[in-house]
Amino acid sequence: MTIRINGTDYDPPEDARVSLLDLLRDRLQLTGTKVGCNQGACGACTVLIDGRRVLSCLTLAAQADGRKVTTIEGLGADGLHPLQAAFLEHDGLQCGYCTPGQICAAAAMLVEAEAGMPSYVTADLTAPVTLSRDEVRERMSGNLCRCGAHNGIVDAILSVAQERAA
């Protein structure tokens, strides 16, 4: 079995304790995925597995066996992803450390919303989701930012959501 990361197949690590995060960062030098807490509290390590957002620090590498992992490096492999461009446009970053996790989380979050998944602030659980500012803030609250780029991050995500809806 193999783990497909950004289109390339890799063997799972021999040490069963290795997290997906440490596989990416320490073994494969895919250091775009960041580490902030190693306990699922900050979101810096967010990657996509089969298109859904997961915290790679809480995922053993072995759990990704046979699945498709997309990291920030894969997201922008064919030129800047619209979210990456929007983060630049809206200055949705300062130090840049939480940024890859924010972008990966946002990519999956847009798909979740388009699939009609409600959030804590969704008023009508059965209607299609419209991504308001509050919806984006709520859905992105698992990704911490300490520099305080929150406004720019939400603006960036909303601009991409609006483009996709148009």
Partner: peptide, 21 residues
């Protein structure tokens, strides 16, 4: 002016201290 390091940061290419091989 846009951040001169913005693009490498959104691409995850900015190398931080624990990322030097």
């Amino acid at each position: 002016a846009s951040r001169i390091d913005g693009e490498i940061k959104v691409r995850g290419e900015a190398r931080f201290a624990a990322e030097v091989a």
